[in-house]
Design a protein around this nucleic acid. Structure first.
Length: 381
RNA sequence: GUGGCUGUAGUUCAGUCGGCUAGAAUGCCAGAUUGUGGCUCUGGAGGUCGUGGGUUCAAGUCCCAUCAGCCACC
C-alpha cells in the first residue's frame, strides 16, 4: 500500500475496521488517539505509550507555535524526533483554540488573530500560515483551520462557522504541499442536520475542484463541533448520518470525544477515530475508568481497600498497585498517582477500541455494542 | 518561684468602639472534567470561642479566678 492509502479490512453494520498508511507506520481503526498538546502526553513516556498500544498521538499547532515555536520543532527534526515518538502523529490546527480561548481571539474572513496566552504576543494566522506552521511541525496528519461553534448557538452563528470553515478548507487544501503529510478537512454545522450535510457537501465539492485542477484531496475527515455542551442524545440525533455522508474510503474522525460509551456507540454509527483529553486529564484529577463505571479515587471508601483498581484489567497499574495506595498518591498530589491513573485510563480506552476492532473483524459489532450498553461499565454515561 | 505573651473549625489564623446565625485559608467529605490556558473548578460538613465566675439589655471582645503552652528572669 502507498502512503495515505486506506483499506477497509471489514465492516459490521455501519462499523468499520480500517488500515491507514503513514510515513511513520500504519494505524488500524477503530482507534483512540491520546492527546499530547505540548508534544507530550502528560505524565507518560513515549515508550510506555507504545507499550500501551497507542498508535496515533496528537499535538497542537497553536500551543507548539507559541512555545517553543514551530521553527524550533522543525530544527529538532520535526515533532516525532523532538519528542521521540516513532509512530504516526496528528496536529490539530488551533481551530479548537478559537473556541476554547475565545476571549483572546479576533476572527476575520481572512484568518484569526490570537493573543498569546503565554506572553500576550499577537499572531495572525491565515489558513496558508496555519499550513506552513503544521508543515514545520511535521505530523503525519494536519487538520484544516476551522471554526467550532459553541452550543447552544444561534443558527446564523453556526451557518457562519460552516461558511468560514469551508472557505478555510479550500485555502488549506490549496496551500498544503508537504508530500509526507496529509490534510484532513473538518465538518461543522452544530446540531443542525441540514447544515452538517451542507458542510460535508462543500468539503467534497472543494475536493473535487482541487483534484480536477491537479491538486490534492483530503486524507480523511474530521467531524468537529460536537461535545461542546450538548447531551449525548442530541449528538447522536445527527452524528450517524453525518458520518455516513462522508466518503467510505477514508477515515472519519470524531474530534474531542472520549467518553467510553460514546466511542462504542459512535463506532456503530461509522466513526473510525477519536481523540480526547478526558482519560488523561481526569486521571490527573483522580478519576479512573473501570469495568464498573467511573471511580473517583479520592473517595474515603478506598482508604483501606487493598484490592486492585480494576480486577478485570491487565494494565501495569492494576497488576501492581492497590486502590488504597492509588488513593494515597492522589490525595498527596504525588505525581506518580497521576501517572498510574493515566496509564490505566489510556489502557482502558485503547483496549476498548482494540476489542471494538476485533468485533468488527468478526462481524459481530451489534452484539459488542449491546453487551457494552448492558454492562455496568456504561452506567456513568 | 516571679513577670510577660498566647489559648477561636482537624490545622494556621482573622474577628473593629461589646451589637444579626462567629469568618478566611488550608485540610476533610462529595461532585465535575470531552480537537488540554486545569497541583483546576463547583458544592457540603465542621466551632461548649481553654475552664469557672462576674459586669452588661447584650461578652470571642471588659473584669476576677483558674488551667494549659511558650518566653524571659530568679
Amino acid at each position: 500500500m502507498a502512503l495515505f492509502d486506506c483499506r477497509i479490512d471489514a465492516r459490521s453494520g455501519h462499523a468499520r475496521a480500517l488500515t491507514y498508511v503513514t510515513a511513520h507506520g500504519d494505524f488500524q481503526t477503530p482507534m483512540f488517539m491520546p492527546v499530547g498538546t505540548h508534544a507530550t502526553v502528560k505524565g507518560i513516556t513515549p515508550d510506555r505509550l507504545k507499550e500501551l498500544g497507542a498508535q496515533v498521538v496528537l499535538a497542537n499547532a497553536y500551543h507548539l507555535a507559541m512555545r517553543p515555536g514551530a521553527e524550533v520543532v522543525a530544527d529538532a527534526g520535526g515533532v516525532h524526533a523532538f519528542m521521540d515518538y516513532p509512530g504516526p502523529m496528528l496536529t490539530d490546527s488551533g481551530g479548537f483554540q478559537i473556541f476554547s480561548l475565545a476571549d483572546t481571539v479576533k476572527l476575520t474572513d481572512d484568518g484569526v488573530e490570537f493573543k498569546s496566552i503565554y506572553d500576550g504576543a499577537r499572531v495572525f494566522w491565515t489558513p496558508e500560515e496555519n499550513m506552513r506552521i503544521q508543515e514545520l511541525i511535521g505530523a503525519d496528519i494536519a487538520m484544516q483551520l476551522d471554526q467550532c461553534a459553541p452550543y447552544p448557538a444561534e443558527r446564523a452563528f453556526v451557518e457562519r462557522a460552516v461558511d468560514l470553515s469551508a472557505a478555510w478548507a479550500k485555502r488549506c487544501l490549496a496551500a498544503h504541499t508537504r508530500p509526507d503529510q496529509t490534510l484532513f478537512g473538518i465538518v461543522q454545522g452544530g446540531m443542525h442536520q441540514d447544515l452538517r450535510l451542507e458542510s460535508v457537501r462543500r468539503l467534497l465539492e472543494i475536493e473535487s475542484a482541487s483534484v480536477e485542477a491537479g491538486g490534492r484531496r483530503f486524507g480523511g475527515f474530521g467531524i468537529g463541533g460536537y461535545s461542546v455542551g450538548e447531551s449525548h442524545e442530541v449528538m447522536f440525533e445527527t452524528l450517524g448520518s453525518v458520518a455516513r455522508a462522508l466518503p467510505e474510503d477514508r477515515p472519519r474522525y470524531l474530534m474531542g470525544v472520549g467518553n467510553p460509551t460514546t466511542l462504542v456507540r459512535a463506532v456503530g454509527e461509522g466513526v473510525d477515530m477519536f481523540d480526547c483529553v478526558l482519560p488523561t486529564r481526569t486521571a490527573r484529577m483522580g478519576t479512573a475508568f473501570s469495568s464498573t463505571g467511573r471511580m473517583n479515587m479520592r473517595n474515603a471508601k478506598f482508604t483501606r481497600d487493598f484490592t486492585p483498581l480494576d480486577l478485570t484489567c491487565g494494565c501495569y497499574t492494576c497488576t501492581h498497585f492497590t486502590r488504597a495506595y492509588l488513593r494515597h498518591l492522589i490525595k498527596q498530589d504525588e505525581m506518580l498517582g497521576g501517572i498510574l491513573l493515566t496509564i490505566h485510563n489510556l489502557h482502558y480506552l485503547l483496549d476498548l477500541m482494540r476489542r471494538a476492532r476485533a468485533a468488527v473483524l468478526a462481524g459481530v459489532y451489534d452484539d459488542f455494542l449491546q453487551t457494552w450498553l448492558d454492562s455496568p461499565a456504561s452506567k456513568d454515561y
